[in-house]
């Protein structure tokens, strides 16, 4: 019994240590500027204030960045997941020449470093006159999101018994009819999981946003918030921590309500291959 308690205490000490930076982020964002420089530092804020959040929303470009990020991530997710769902169905359930090499190509690109593609992509998007648009980022994000989504969905699709589709065909459905009536409903958890991962990947992306967009109107959160750090004369940590918290809000929501979908995605794509 004592051993059990000790083990629990130890385990939770480690868990809390891992989570401490996040705790500190929230605490800092709620402290008045003056309390930040107190020695010794206060663990819980003496005075809780939301002034940084208010300033973030009213005095900075944060809302524009946030809006850009939402549009960018949602569009990327919708485009990528739609294309990948059809593609995964094709790769798993149809037979034609080149199908297997294609599956390997998907896996290969899934591992490809962004810095290899970024130079030609930059030249291509500048050439098309798309630089500095959210659309250019959608195009750039498909380079990592599409292979990723395809790989995940492929493994979800392979988990749906082939007999279900066969049964629908015998019952009189066409291939696309069987896809709509039987496969899509079965694939739905996988699609949700893939969409969440794609959304998170797009939400968090930094490098392409750094290279392809440099106007405040089109910047997503990652480069926007980072710019607040770099461009400010006097680093306001509370403000930055408030921005960090706000930036993580969508992830916290996903986490709170849809965690099972995230763990499922882990199993399907991350390790099972």
């Amino acid at each position: 019994m004592i051993r059990r308690v000790l083990f629990n205490l130890m385990a939770w000490a480690i868990v809390l240590a891992v989570a401490f930076p996040l705790f500190w982020m929230v605490v800092t964002s709620l402290k008045p500027q003056s309390e930040l420089f107190r020695r010794p530092p206060t663990i819980l804020p003496e005075v809780t204030t939301f002034e940084h959040y208010w300033r973030l929303l009213s005095e900075t470009n944060f809302l524009t960045y946030f809006q850009n990020s939402v549009v960018l991530s949602v569009v990327t997710t919708v485009v990528v997941v739609s294309i990948a769902t059809l593609g995964a169905y094709s790769i798993v359930r149809f037979k034609y020449w080149g199908r297997e090499s294609l599956a390997f190509l998907v896996l290969f690109t899934y591992l490809l470093p962004s810095v290899v593609l970024i130079i030609p992509l930059y030249l291509m998007l500048v050439g098309l006159g798309l630089s500095n648009t959210i659309f250019s980022l959608v195009i750039a994000y498909t380079t990592f999101a599409l292979p990723y989504a395809l790989w995940l969905l492929r493994s979800f699709m392979a988990g749906i018994p082939e007999d279900l589709e066969s049964a629908a065909l015998v019952d009189g459905a066409s291939r696309m009819g069987a896809f709509r009536d039987v496969i899509l409903p079965q694939l739905l958890p996988g699609i949700i999981s893939t969409a969440l991962f794609t959304f998170i990947l797009s939400w968090n992306e930094y490098l392409y946003a750094l290279v392809l967009v440099n106007s405040d109107n089109t910047r997503p959160l990652t480069t926007g918030v980072m710019n607040m750090l770099i461009s400010s004369f006097n680093v306001e940590w509370s403000l930055l921590m408030a921005a960090s918290v706000m930036m993580s809000v969508p992830l916290i929501i996903v986490f709170a309500f849809l965690q099972s979908y995230l763990t499922r995605g882990f199993g399907a794509g991350g390790v099972k291959g």
Binding site: V15, P21, L22, N204, Y206, L229, S244, S248, F255
Partner: peptide, 22 residues
């Protein structure tokens, strides 16, 4: 505990870096 452990993986690198720099 599992959610707390998982969180660093899902937050943006930008957030992680800001927090750690602080």
């Amino acid at each position: 505990a599992r959610s707390l452990i998982l969180f660093p993986y899902f937050i943006s690198t930008v957030v992680a870096v800001l927090v750690w720099r602080w």
